[in-house]
Nucleic acid binder design. Structure first.
Length: 784
RNA sequence: GGGCAAUUGGCUCAGUGGUUAGAGCGCUUCCUUGACAUGGAAGAGGUCACAGGUUCGAUUCCUGUAUUGCCCACCA
């Protein structure tokens, strides 16, 4: 045996095996390899600087499963990709390169984005590799590369032909800061303090109608006043007109049940558009469209003297003017929540504009049914999916008035406005630089206006199964592989990535995208609070990897059940580190006593202690296998831990020592084989969770036992069946007796290694059978 | 307001329709024994949030309440 280092050092061991795995293509996907394919729709992380702890948490979860499946002999398709277009990427480039997209030449900005992504991606991905991810990193996709452009545009055309996408001028959620339309799923809530203003609208008899509003700057957009049909105070007013203060125009007073009698004065102004209810009323009552805010959030001509002001300043000025005219009769501070854009945290508006949409409202029921065809881990996560769909209020707006994204493969006829779609064989195209073939099909004109908008990044990431599969398969074969086996992801993007992928798969293939989904939780700080830069409680996985190693990080990650949020705990990571140390020390013990590891033959006759540990191992294998099958990696870890520490290390290793140091060669040999067999299986069981230390041990001591290059493509443990086994039905009593001896020594403050003269056992034990064993194990001269 | 989840020893969490509810950390006492002091042995510590109900029996099932967290709606 070669020299064994006393300590296990992950910082030396881990890079070595990472390199080995890559060089030997251990995780490389071969479509022709044997074994059924198990396909994973790996989440493409948004390229954003560095991997964060939440990534490390949820990605390792899927890696546990992938590694388990691989050892089960399945041909695991575990691709990798990065998401790097859209607003998130623009923001990253603006920040790191200190530029503003809106102030740059469009092409220059796109070039800068592409170039920057190329620069930072390898470094970004290396963190995933350091975390021990067993994806095939030899071929990865990016949601902005040519292949993704082509597939995404082609799919868009498919949607267009099937009439699942349409272009329409309609109210859409708008971010004035980013100056683009956004989707409902991109909203967040924020509590803000604001003023609730009681404003006087004059009626025809010069009487006052008080209206409460938080947004007086929209007065110029007021198109109606609504009251509740059952409101006695205002019943008579319905059908009359009210005069908008300052602006002087008259609007109709209408009745609608959506009005809350209790809120404000019970009378509400309807503006185009203040909120979603305004949009509903606009549609239902066919109200005029009067926009006061432009796309950058400034007041337009309609706002007359306020034109050109920002909404905020206009609000202040209008309030002052109302005060001067004595039309402001009340004001109170309230706290309410508003929708903000998740990317920039600014309040959103509703803007009427021309956008591309994907239909989703029409098929809500269908999407809920499709959700039921997918197996959810944990099952309750499906309720979140359904809850989201039930509450959907808008079709999916996919066009963005931005720069760095996949362009729509579309032009418009310069004469009649008819939509002209690109030819599929020309894809990918950019309508701004490429010209369409032929003439307008409607009017024969040959001048076209290119679509300037780009697609929402989710419009591309929602076809991730195709992006990933088409890296390795032709399009037809790729389609046959849908549904994929598994979509792993965290719960925060159920309403986006998960839902949108179901939508797209349904529209393109009339299939569910995957058979099963596994949903991970989030990482909170040690107090259970969200990690955020402003709170300064962010934990960098890179530091953990460096300090404790990947196996320790993964051990921590495996500690919580699927779907559960986890509190970050350095202690738990330390236990992971301890486990690698323990494994290493057991390996050293074995190596000191066993020249060359040999496995038990099934004809071998073992001793009771051996039979007992084999029996316990078999139970553990069964339970662990079942747990991994159900994505219950935490349960699997618990089973392996329990067996390894409490059965194998605490007892069996002690049981076998006297044989190793004794002179009964036959007994010694059987002990050697048993310890090797059991430990070999322990290493395999731990391999999906702790891939590095298990590989190190496997390569050092067990490699000759199986024809395989790596423990990670070795065979998953199976029950060990020996032809003849001693009866161990009473072995539990022997263990009890061992405990009793240990207790006795502890109480006497004697070291466990010290020999004592005699002990009288209270435990009923078959001394004829186990007397000698107990004497040796317990170091007692006489037992009665 | 709607949905989902959680509530078990000081802390973090497992767990089960049924004899004394488990683990790790922490704590106490002891042990340097030929894998490991980055260790080992023994031990203290819980009316399983609360209230009803189902049951021969509930921490486990049902209902309600409270508290906490997440998602969504409310934004006039």
């Amino acid at each position: 045996m070669k020299e064994i280092s006393k300590h296990y050092n992950p910082s030396e061991v881990e890079p070595k095996w990472r390199e080995f795995w890559e060089k030997n293509n251990i995780y490389k996907f071969d479509p022709k390899a044997k074994g059924g394919i198990f396909s994973v729709d790996t989440p493409p992380p948004t390229v954003s600087g560095k991997m964060h702890i939440g990534h490390a948490y949820s990605y390792t979860h899927e890696d546990f499963i992938a590694r388990y499946r691989r050892m089960r002999g399945e041909n695991v398709f575990f691709p990798f990709g990065t998401d790097n277009n859209g607003l998130a990427t623009e923001r990253l480039i603006e920040k790191t390169k200190n530029v503003r997209a809106s102030k740059m030449d469009r092409n220059d900005f796109i070039k800068l984005c592409n170039q920057t992504i190329k620069e930072i991606t390898p470094d970004f991905i290396s963190d995933w590799q350091k975390a021990g991810m067993s994806c095939d990193f030899s071929k990865i996709y990016s949601t902005i590369d040519d292949n993704s452009r082509r597939i995404s545009q082609k799919n868009f055309i498919d949607l267009y032909k099937k009439k699942y996408t349409y272009r329409q001028e309609a109210p859409v959620i708008w971010c004035s800061h980013c100056q683009t339309a956004i989707a409902q799923a991109e909203l967040e809530d924020k509590e803000i303090e604001t003023l609730f203003n009681d404003i006087v609208f004059k009626l025809k008899d010069k009487k006052d109608l008080i209206i409460a509003t938080t947004r007086p700057e929209l007065l110029s957009s007021c198109v109606a006043v609504f009251v509740h049909p059952d409101d006695k105070r205002y019943k008579k007013l319905v059908g009359q007109k009210a005069q908008v203060p300052i602006f002087g125009n008259k609007v109709e007073i209408l009745a609608d049940k959506k009005v809350d009698l209790e809120k404000g004065s019970g009378a509400v102004m309807c503006c185009t558009f203040g909120d979603k209810t305004d949009v509903e009323w606009f549609k239902e009552y066919k109200l005029p469209l009067v926009m006061s805010l432009d796309k950058s959030g400034r007041m337009m001509e309609k706002a007359k003297k306020y034109a050109g002001l920002s909404a905020k300043v206009a609000r202040q000025n209008i309030i002052e003017d109302l005060q001067k005219k004595k039309l402001l009769v009340g004001q109170k501070k309230i706290t309410h929540s508003v929708n903000i854009h998740e990317r920039c945290k600014n309040e959103v508006e509703i803007m009427n504009s021309l956008q591309w949409y994907i239909r989703i409202l029409d098929e809500k029921k269908e999407f809920i049914d499709l959700g039921k065809k997918i197996k959810w881990h944990p099952p309750f996560m499906r309720a979140r999916y359904e809850n989201w769909i039930n509450n959907l209020g808008w079709d999916w707006a996919i066009s963005r008035q931005r720069f760095f994204g996949i362009p729509f493969p579309v032009w418009y006829c310069g004469k009649c406005g008819e939509i002209k779609i690109a030819d599929i064989e020309d894809l990918p195209i950019d309508p701004l630089s490429d010209k369409p073939k032929g003439k307008c099909e409607k009017c024969g004109n040959s001048k076209f206006i290119p679509e300037k908008d780009v697609m929402d990044t989710w419009a591309t990431s929602s076809i991730s199964p195709q992006l990933a599969l088409q890296l390795f398969f032709d399009e037809k074969t790729a389609q046959k592989m849908i549904p994929m086996n598994l979509r792993p992801q965290a719960h925060d993007i159920i309403s986006t990535w998960l839902f949108y992928t179901v939508v797209r798969s349904h529209y393109h293939f009339d299939k569910i995208p995957w058979k099963e989904v596994m949903i991970s939780g989030h990482v909170l700080d040690s107090q259970g609070k969200k990690m955020s830069k402003s709170l300064g409680n962010v934990v960098a996985p890179q530091e953990i990897l460096e300090k404790y190693g990947s196996d320790a990080l993964r051990y921590w990650s495996a500690g919580s059940s699927l779907g559960q949020d986890i509190n970050y705990s350095e202690d738990e990571i330390k236990i992971g580190k301890k486990t690698t140390t323990k494994l290493w020390n057991v390996a050293r013990f074995m190596a000191m006593n066993v020249k060359k590891a040999e496995l038990l033959k099934d004809s071998e006759m073992v001793e009771p202690a051996d039979a007992w540990i084999i029996d316990e191992l078999n139970k553990t294998i069964a339970k662990t296998t079942k747990a991994f099958e159900n994505y219950a990696y935490a349960k699997a870890k618990e089973e392996i831990d329990g067996f390894f520490w409490s059965k194998f290390a605490d007892y069996y290793v002690e049981f076998v020592k006297y044989r190793f140091f004794g002179d009964d060669e036959k007994s010694k040999k059987i002990g050697e084989k048993t310890i090797a067999t059991v430990f070999f299986n322990i290493v395999k069981l731990y391999a999906p969770i702790m891939p590095f230390v298990t590989e190190e041990i496997f390569q050092t001591w067990f490699k000759h036992l199986e024809k395989t290059k790596s423990v990670h493509i070795s065979k998953w443990p199976e029950e060990i069946k020996l032809k003849k086994m001693p009866d161990i039905s009473d072995f539990a009593s022997a263990i009890k007796a061992v405990d009793e001896i240990r207790k006795h020594k502890t109480k006497q403050n004697i070291s466990l290694g010290a020999e004592i003269d005699s002990i009288k056992l209270k435990t009923k034990t078959n001394l004829k059978k186990y007397g000698e064993f107990l004497k040796k194990v317990g170091r007692v001269k006489k037992i009665s």
